Amino acid sequence: MGERRGHIVLWGLYGLAWCLAPWLLTASYAQVLASQIGIAILSCLAYNLLLGQGGMLSFGHAIYGGAGAYAVIDALQTLQAHPPTGAAATWIVAALPLWGALAGAGLAAGLGALCARHSGTAFGMITLGLGELVAAVAQMAPQVFGGEAGRSANRVLNASAWHFGPSSHLLMLVAGYTLAGTAALWALTRTPFGLLLGAVRDEPERLAFLGHSPAWVRWQALVLSGAVSGLAGGLAALLFERVSPDVFSGARSAALLLFVFVGGSAHFVGPMWGAVWMVLSLTALASLTPAWPLYLGLVFLWMVWRAPQGWAGLLSDAHAALRTGWVPGQRLRSMGRGLGQIGRGLAVAGAVVWAVEALYRRQFGA
């Protein structure tokens, strides 16, 4: 009962934060950053539907978000040629991310038929090949995908109506979709399909013996994940009003894998932590130091070596330890050891940062 009450409080705070964000964040930069975090949360949760819940390691998942982004940009360009009038423009733009979700689901339905029959390494290699194939096609068809310049469109279709021109208005839209997507994916883990997905990850042979097709379950998971990824891609297209073939790149797929793992793929909130780290790393950290890719690589290596359960797993272990009811003397000793480990870790991290920054200044003058 206490754990259930804790979940209700945490989800209530999460929903309240998104509801208040458009009103509390007044700076345009903060509003855009919050919108990016919401989009990243949807992308990482969609990826973790495969990795954490279904045990499917995908190396080309960014293509579904890219499909959603291009679908929305194409729809915006079409609507600009024939703009709707009145309040209809507002509702049409608000519904465009659903068109992106449909595009992502459609691409996943087609490509998923090629890889859902396999698992493990074979699944990963097929997704890698499909991802590179789509990325290559996008580069070779500039008349469709816009080449290096990409394609752009204006999300404001009718200035006389309530529109999404201000970043605060778009943040309201992103917050609504993020809350709805998070709630839907959380509810999915409590359904029979969520249990089947866990069985595909842990015991596919036993699941097949019970009469369920693991390939069919994987395909359904791919379609659902592609839909949520396409939704996130559509929101990103509305936010930046531009999309280029880079959205299909392997680097985008690798970033999803890296930050979902760092956040903790075994926990539902892990990808959400990873999404926050991803946005802050690619924006704030990248503006502070040119060595940010090196730091990300070091963090990833450390997590694989010392904490494969991710940040969410570390927090879960710490919470479980606090509830075990230690003897006072043992608690003090454990706290002392924990503080000592934190201190040593901070000292090592500080030394690494100092050495890296000194080397960069010496070699590149940055």
Rank of each mutant, 00 (worst) to 15 (best):
A95E: 05
G68C: 08
L79M: 10
P84C: 05
A199Y: 13
P142H: 03
L96I: 06
A122E: 12
T78N: 10
A116S: 15
A108H: 01
E203C: 03
P204V: 01
V137D: 02
G198P: 01
A103C: 07
A116F: 12
L111T: 12
D74E: 10
A89R: 08
G106L: 13
T90Q: 06
L128S: 05
L76W: 10
V174K: 05
L185N: 02
A138Y: 03
W91C: 05
G106E: 01
A71W: 11
G176I: 08
V156K: 14
V156R: 14
G110N: 02
G198R: 15
L107G: 02
R151G: 00
A71T: 03
A103P: 07
A109Q: 05
Y177C: 05
R155S: 08
L133C: 10
L107R: 01
R201Y: 09
H82L: 12
G129C: 02
L171W: 09
S152E: 09
T127A: 06
A153F: 07
A199M: 14
G66F: 10
G112D: 06
P83G: 11
R155Y: 10
W186V: 00
G104V: 00
M140N: 15
T127V: 02
A67S: 12
Y177Q: 11
F145S: 01
T182D: 06
F145E: 04
L171T: 12
L111Y: 03
L111A: 07
A180I: 13
I126G: 07
G112C: 00
H82F: 08
A103E: 04
G112A: 00
T78H: 10
L79G: 00
R201G: 09
P192D: 04
V156N: 15
G146T: 02
G181I: 01
V144P: 08
T189S: 09
G176F: 12
L102M: 09
H169M: 14
T182I: 12
F193T: 02
R155A: 09
T121M: 14
Q80P: 06
Y70N: 06
H169S: 15
M125Y: 06
T85V: 12
H118A: 15
G181E: 03
